[in-house]
Design a protein around this nucleic acid. Structure first.
Lengths: 154, 154
DNA sequence: CACAAATAGTTGCGCGCGCAACCTTCAGGG
DNA sequence: CCCTGAAGGTTGCGCGCGCAACTATTTGTG
């Protein structure tokens, strides 16, 4: 356990918050991977595209902006998902540069099967926190995201 | 801001804690990169090796275990740092498989210059949290790490 | 209306990563 | 003692990522 005094002068990596956040994010990703990877054959970019498009169809650029992934990463994930017939793209007549990305029937089936499992996995993870701990942690998350401008939609 | 009710049924990525943690970790890494990257020409693996070896000399395996990096990643970072004369390796007579990794004089100079900057940067980041918020957030971090077994030293 | 600048998206390329295989050295049992 | 298995590190290889450059289309401006 790593409760650390604020005014430390010597650097211990396992007490250094940026490192701890990286390590935690990696750990949580692995904790989730069992769902979308082993069971549905999706990698992280593909999973994020599915999750974004699942609620409402949108453009590749919108996916990139809201997931904060590089547009090439999004582009490649879309190509792969399209090859698996999980998503499809419809040309927009008003602006023929962009294309509307949406789930196919098969994509919707996968989506409605996947989402509850992912949410349950999140719930199981957060269940290790007492209610007030959870609240405090999420509040800290909010403030840090806001400080770094991560939730802004440019 | 993303305070989210616990029992959601629809998945919105920007409210999904695993995604938020990944995004936050990436954001914090970039926030720190200005220090060790632009200013000292270190990438993340190199920086982690320096930080680990800085306090006390140790083996590559120990670095891998305490940073949770793959041993090949550690190995390559060590080779690069050695080429820059920031670290050196001493053969262990008792066990000639392993080698003790430690800072050179130049490495120590860089280290003593770098550490206060990194800690200051961490302090600046966490300063966006009110004292109790910080406490709550770190407590949540502790519990999650413990739940995922991230602080264990196998 | 023409031309410059911006936007949506794709692709070539180099690099860093992890896996698996490998080399060397050590420990331990038959 | 040998010989098998394990441990510390290194290296070959394939893959995914981001950067930069590109195409195609749209918008803005004189």
């Amino acid at each position: 356990m790593n409760g650390r005094p604020a005014a430390e002068q010597t650097l211990e990596l396992s007490a250094f918050v940026p490192f701890r956040l990286n390590r935690l994010a990696t750990g949580v990703s692995q904790y989730l991977a069992a769902i979308y990877q082993a069971r549905f054959g999706l990698d992280i970019p593909q999973w994020r595209v599915m999750a974004t498009v699942g609620e409402t169809a949108c453009t590749a650029q919108h996916i990139a902006a809201s997931t904060r992934m590089h547009k090439t990463r999004v582009s490649r994930a879309i190509v792969e998902l399209e090859a698996r017939d999980l998503i499809e793209r419809a040309s927009n007549e008003r602006d023929r540069r962009e294309r509307q990305v949406r789930l196919t029937k098969a994509g919707q089936r996968l989506y409605t099967e996947l989402v509850p499992l992912a949410l349950e996995r999140e719930r199981a993870l957060l269940a290790c926190l007492a209610p007030e701990q959870l609240h405090g942690f999420l509040q800290g998350l909010d403030v840090l995201e806001n400080f770094l401008g991560l939730d802004a939609q440019p």
